[in-house]
Computed example of a mutant assay.
Amino acid sequence: MANVDGKWNVTVKSPLGDQQAMLDVQSAGDSFSGTFSGGMGTSQVNGTVAGDTMTWKMDISVPMPMTLDCQATVSGDTMDGQVTAGAFGSFPLTGTRA
Results as ranks from 00 to 15, higher is better:
residue 70 C to A: 12
residue 10 V to H: 01
residue 26 Q to I: 10
residue 60 I to K: 05
residue 63 P to F: 08
residue 42 T to V: 08
residue 40 M to D: 13
residue 32 F to N: 06
residue 30 D to P: 09
residue 45 V to H: 01
residue 37 S to H: 03
residue 30 D to A: 14
residue 15 P to H: 04
residue 54 M to D: 02
residue 15 P to Q: 07
residue 13 K to Q: 14
residue 35 T to P: 02
residue 17 G to F: 06
residue 98 A to T: 09
residue 91 F to C: 03
residue 94 T to P: 04
residue 96 T to N: 09
residue 55 T to E: 11
residue 78 T to L: 00
residue 69 D to F: 05
residue 25 V to Y: 09
residue 27 S to R: 12
residue 4 V to F: 02
residue 44 Q to P: 04
residue 43 S to P: 01
residue 29 G to F: 10
residue 64 M to D: 11
residue 84 T to F: 03
residue 43 S to G: 06
residue 84 T to N: 11
residue 43 S to F: 02
residue 80 D to P: 01
residue 50 A to T: 15
residue 19 Q to T: 08
residue 89 G to R: 08
residue 49 V to G: 08
residue 74 V to I: 12
residue 75 S to N: 15
residue 57 K to S: 12
residue 11 T to H: 05
residue 10 V to C: 00
residue 56 W to M: 08
residue 2 A to D: 09
residue 4 V to N: 03
residue 25 V to W: 05
residue 87 A to S: 15
residue 87 A to F: 11
residue 22 M to W: 07
residue 91 F to Y: 09
residue 50 A to Y: 08
residue 48 T to I: 08
residue 60 I to G: 13
residue 19 Q to I: 10
residue 51 G to N: 13
residue 55 T to S: 15
residue 65 P to Y: 03
residue 16 L to V: 06
residue 55 T to V: 11
residue 59 D to K: 13
residue 94 T to F: 02
residue 49 V to P: 07
residue 17 G to K: 04
residue 48 T to N: 12
residue 37 S to M: 07
residue 31 S to N: 13
residue 47 G to V: 05
residue 49 V to E: 06
residue 33 S to P: 08
residue 36 F to A: 10
residue 8 W to Q: 00
residue 18 D to N: 14
residue 35 T to E: 13
residue 43 S to M: 11
residue 32 F to M: 11
residue 91 F to K: 07
residue 37 S to F: 04
residue 69 D to L: 03
residue 58 M to N: 12
residue 65 P to R: 06
residue 43 S to A: 15
residue 74 V to S: 03
residue 66 M to F: 04
residue 83 V to R: 02
residue 7 K to W: 05
residue 65 P to K: 06
residue 59 D to V: 06
residue 65 P to V: 04
residue 83 V to Q: 10
residue 5 D to F: 07
residue 66 M to L: 06
residue 75 S to Y: 01
residue 2 A to R: 08
residue 54 M to Y: 04
residue 40 M to R: 14
residue 10 V to I: 04
